[in-house]
């Protein structure tokens, strides 16, 4: 039993890694006032690029750089669409997600070399997990204690007043979306590194879960991290309990599969009203 417990805890850490990184990306984006449904697309684009470049070059560094680059580019496209073209943030995000899902599916089937021969072509997963925890702390500190963090909070809460105080909200949002891209890039690369090859839609909605965790965490780094761990824990529980009868009842795996989503839904119903979203979220 203790062994099982350890195993669940270990896989909690493993499974929540991509969520934490993506949620931090969402944190930067949403704190600056840009709703970011596109976390999913960035992760997927990054995962695809990581595997592709990793397989082509065999260099984990280049693979990582490629993943980060891809996600940053997607983040900047989201910035251009929402800030320059004034496209609704949710529509832009959904559009990007659909396009990226389509494009990566297209490539996955066409390019047969989209599979790394050895895991070494991508940085090991432990590198990313460490990053996830370190970066969560760093993000919390950055937002609470630096000029950049203060500007981020200010434009996210009130772009007009921030402009009055001499800030440039559009510029700050571009930067934030680039940072969000980097973080989602890490998340995508981690997902790629865990599996070693690319499968269409391999992010499997984890970008959305990360967003839910961010909201449950009240748009704060450490609570969001904890929410991600919670989701990871449920997922780990699901993997362990699958096919194991509990008190003599054989529960279907789908029940466990839907647990984290149901948990998110219930948490949203219970806590949403208590967490204040950045007041300027979605505003031009």
């Amino acid at each position: 039993m203790t062994n099982d417990m350890m195993q669940v805890l270990m896989s909690t850490v493993v499974l929540s890694g991509p969520l934490i990184l993506a949620a931090l990306g969402g944190l930067f984006s949403e704190r600056s006032g840009v709703i970011n449904i596109a976390l999913e697309g960035k992760m997927l684009g990054a995962a695809c690029t990581a595997v592709f470049i990793g397989a082509q070059t065999g260099s984990p560094l280049l693979s990582l750089i490629g993943a980060l680059g891809a996600a940053v580019i997607i983040g900047l496209i989201h910035a251009v669409l929402t800030q320059v073209y004034n496209v609704d943030h949710i529509i832009s995000g959904m559009g990007l997600n659909a396009s990226i899902l389509g494009a990566t599916t297209l490539f996955a089937k066409t390019l047969p070399q989209l599979q790394t021969d050895e895991a070494a072509a991508i940085f090991p997963s432990s590198f990313f997990w460490t990053m996830a925890f370190v970066l969560a702390g760093a993000a919390a500190l950055y937002i609470a204690r630096t000029r950049g963090g203060l500007h981020l909070l200010a434009v996210g809460n009130d772009p007009d007043k921030s402009r009055q105080m001499g800030l440039n909200p559009v510029k700050i949002r571009f930067k934030s979306l680039a940072v969000a891209g980097l973080l989602c890039g890490l998340s995508g690369a981690l997902i790629a590194s865990t599996s070693g090859n690319f499968v269409p839609n391999m992010t499997d909605g984890r970008g959305y879960i990360a967003l839910a965790a961010l909201i449950l965490g009240g748009w704060r780094a450490i609570p969001a991290l904890l929410a991600c761990l919670l989701f990871g824990f449920f997922h780990a529980l699901e993997l362990m309990l699958q096919g194991q009868p509990i008190l003599g009842v054989d529960l279907p795996p789908e029940l466990w599969q839907s647990l984290p989503y149901a948990a998110a839904l219930i948490a949203l119903a219970l806590f949403a009203g208590h967490n204040k979203a950045p007041a300027g979220l979605g505003r031009p």
Binding site: A98, G102, L106, A108
Partner: peptide
């Protein structure tokens, strides 16, 4: 031509 184009 594989599926996925409609998404794009």
């Amino acid at each position: 031509i594989p599926k996925g184009l409609n998404g794009v």
